[in-house]
Computed example of a mutant assay.
Amino acid sequence: MPLWKIVHTPGLFTETDRTQLSRDITDRYEKAGLPRFYVVVTFAETDPSNIYVGGEQRPTVRVEIAHIARHQDGATGRRRVAQWVNDVLATHLDREGLHWEFHIDETSEELWMINGYVPPPGRSEAEKAWRTANRPMDY
């Protein structure tokens, strides 16, 4: 499961912007082999008085990403994923005067369940079945 928590100052995203960014994120993970329902994106608009960068208030987007379904081995793989995330975000966030950043945590898949199911191993036939059905089920 990738979980994207997007915290931002007001007025940066319309509903259409949020929908498009969420779909762009989900599409990328689907192309990498994950079921679409693994991808969760949340938006939390935060009052400007509650976001400071370098001790100052400014228009900001801060993205916290948890990767659980897939992990990268080595610095090269992790850097490739960071660039991949950067490419997705830059399309939506590369704006004059906007401070934006992200980080990615990798959490053990052993600490993850969906609707009470332990997800199948990555790239397994069971995961492919989940992907096709776009929902968790017995395997």
Rank of each mutant, 00 (worst) to 15 (best):
W4P: 02
I6H: 04
I6E: 02
V7G: 06
H8Q: 01
P10I: 05
G11N: 01
G11W: 01
F13G: 03
E15P: 12
T16Y: 04
T16A: 13
R18Q: 09
T19M: 12
Q20F: 07
R23A: 06
D24W: 00
T26K: 01
D27F: 01
R28N: 08
R28Q: 09
Y29G: 02
E30H: 05
K31Q: 11
A32T: 07
A32M: 15
L34T: 07
V39I: 08
V39T: 12
V40A: 09
T42S: 10
F43A: 04
F43M: 00
A44F: 15
E45T: 05
E45R: 02
D47Y: 07
D47K: 03
I51R: 01
E56T: 11
R58F: 08
R58H: 06
P59I: 01
R62T: 11
R62G: 10
V63K: 03
V63G: 11
E64M: 12
E64C: 12
I65S: 01
A66E: 09
H67I: 12
H67G: 15
I68N: 00
A69H: 09
A69K: 06
H71E: 14
D73H: 08
D73I: 14
G74I: 06
G74C: 06
A75P: 14
T76S: 11
R78Y: 06
R80W: 06
A82T: 06
Q83A: 11
W84R: 00
V85K: 01
L89G: 09
L89I: 00
T91F: 06
T91I: 14
L93G: 01
L93T: 04
D94A: 08
R95K: 03
E96H: 13
G97R: 13
G97P: 12
E101N: 10
F102Q: 00
F102D: 00
F102C: 02
E106S: 11
S108L: 10
L111W: 08
W112V: 04
N115K: 13
N115H: 14
V118W: 05
V118L: 10
V118I: 13
P121F: 15
P121Q: 15
G122N: 15
G122M: 13
G122R: 15
R123P: 07
R123K: 15
E125T: 13
A126N: 02
A126M: 10
A126T: 09
E127W: 14
R131Q: 08
T132N: 07
T132E: 10
A133R: 02
N134E: 08
N134V: 03
R135S: 09
R135K: 09
R135N: 09
D138L: 07
Y139L: 05
